[in-house]
Every structure is written in structure tokens, then in C-alpha cells.
Amino acid sequence: MRVKVSLSADEPFKISFNHQYYLASAIYNIVKEGNPNFAEKLHKIRDFKFYTFSTLKLPRRVIYKDYLESYDGKAYFYVSSPNKEFIECFVNGLFEKGRIRVGNIIFHIERISLLESPKEFKILKTLSPIYLKTKVEEDGRLKTKDLLPTHSKFYENLKKNLKRKYEKYFNKECNLDFDFEILKFKPKRVKIKGGYLTCSDLVFKVWGDYELIKFGYDCGFGEKNSLGFGMVEVSK
């Protein structure tokens, strides 16, 4: 399930490119407003939370080096999950609260739209960058290394990660498969709390089992989906 949330601020605003952590906190607080018990259970989960969201989109904007500036105070973002209860709690929280705070900006909720799932998946484009990591040995010690599509492990890990999430969510073995070919790639560095993650904005061709690809569409591709990584849309 996927919803589009349309927002308006009282005046034009500036927002850093590195706003994902603030938006993640805002989404959790909205879910808590909609259902405190569900939010508490969600907070205790340490692995997959099975939802993702896009970065904030500004229809009328000017782009600077470190931030975006809105001309008209309008913005929107998407939230997606295979878990119907999560979407219901989030939407109920939006109606209850009537506004959402992202960093120091307060937005009013203008519209909440429930979007239909695509009937097929051919070309996908990221709405928030895909993050993957691996372990490498350096100086006799294992260290975490962020992965880009220039590394062969990126392809292997993306597929394995989605299948692990599928098995965890449905509590059954994943006998489905998919494959993909990257058509466009742009590396990004995103600040989360005090550190930076190296990730990828992609356009990629995808084929395989519809059910598995749709699951990735709903909960996100790659890691750290609940921090706003790995949301995709069908490219037109």
C-alpha cells in the first residue's frame, strides 16, 4: 500500500538535502499519534520494519549546494508498506494531528491520497536512494563498507536483502526471484545523525516474479528502509 501526503507551510521555506532522519522521526510520531501501542511495538523491532518513504518533493523550488528552497511553501512525500495496519495507523495519525513537523518546519496536511499498485514493473526509479553495505577485511579486521553499483556485491546483496525481508514478513521460504539491470546511477552521501552513508539514486530495469518485485515496491529495496532509503516508483 502507498499513500501520497501533500503538505503546505505558512510561508516559503528552506530545507537541507539531509532531511531524511527528521522525516523518519516525524513519520514515527504520526504513527504513534494514530496508534500508540502499534508504534511502541514498531520501535522495539531491531531488524526489518517493513515500510519506507520518499524524500520531500518540492514542486516549485530552487536548488542550492546544500539545501532546497521552496517558492510557494508546498511539498509532498510518499509512504509505502505491505503492512495494512501500518498505513492505517499512519493515516489515522495524520487526520488526528492535522500537521507534521520536519526539523523546524511545520507543515499542514492538505491531502492524503491512497495510490493503486502498478499492474506491472519494467523500469523503476528511486524516490529515495538505495543503501547497501558489506563486510570487508582490512588489516586483519572486518570493516563495514558501503556498496555502490560499481561493486559486484551490490547486485548480490540487493537480491538477498529483498528475499530475506520477504521470508521474515511472510514467515515462509522465498521461492521467488527477480533480476535487474541498472540504466542510470548517481552516488549520494546522506547524513543520518552524526555520520554519512554512501548510497545510490538509480533508474533500473527489472524483471522476474511480480509478487517479489511488488514487495520491494511496497517495503523498499536495500537496507534502512524505515530511515527513508530504497523507495522506488515506476518510471514513465
Rank of each mutant, 00 (worst) to 15 (best):
V91S: 02
I105G: 01
F48C: 02
K74E: 09
F13N: 03
P82K: 00
E110F: 01
K74Y: 02
R111M: 10
R61K: 15
Y67P: 03
V31R: 02
D47T: 13
C89W: 03
S16H: 02
Y22T: 05
L42Q: 00
L115M: 11
E88W: 08
N83R: 12
H108I: 11
E11S: 12
N83K: 08
T55C: 07
A39G: 11
E33Y: 08
T52A: 02
S54P: 05
S25Y: 15
K65Q: 12
Y67G: 02
E96T: 13
N92L: 15
D47E: 14
L56Q: 10
E85M: 06
I15V: 08
F50P: 06
V31G: 05
S16N: 07
R101G: 04
N104C: 06
K65R: 14
F50L: 07
L68R: 01
N92Y: 14
N92R: 07
G34R: 00
A26L: 09
K74Q: 08
T52K: 05
L115C: 11
F95N: 13
P36G: 12
Y22A: 08
V91T: 07
F50K: 03
I109Q: 09
R60D: 12
Y21N: 10
K44R: 13
Y76A: 08
E69I: 10
V102I: 11
I63Q: 09
L115K: 05
G73I: 01
G93E: 06
F38Q: 09
N37I: 15
D66P: 00
F48Y: 15
K49W: 05
L94P: 02
I30Y: 06
G73V: 06
N29F: 07
A75D: 06
L56C: 09
T52M: 02
I63T: 10
I30D: 00
S113T: 14
S113W: 03
V91M: 08
Y71W: 12
G103M: 00
K14V: 04
Y78K: 01
F53N: 03
Y22P: 05
S81F: 06
P12H: 05
T55I: 15
L23M: 07
F13S: 07
R99G: 01
N35W: 07
K84A: 12
N104W: 12
L23R: 02
F77I: 06
I63R: 04
D47R: 10
I27A: 03
H43D: 11
Q20D: 07
Y28W: 14
F53L: 14
V62W: 11
F86Q: 09
H43K: 08
N29I: 01
Q20H: 11
A26E: 12
I106F: 06
N104E: 13
F38V: 14
R60M: 14
N104L: 10
G103T: 09
I100L: 14
S25P: 00
I87T: 01
G34K: 03
N29R: 11
E69F: 11
F95R: 14
R111H: 07
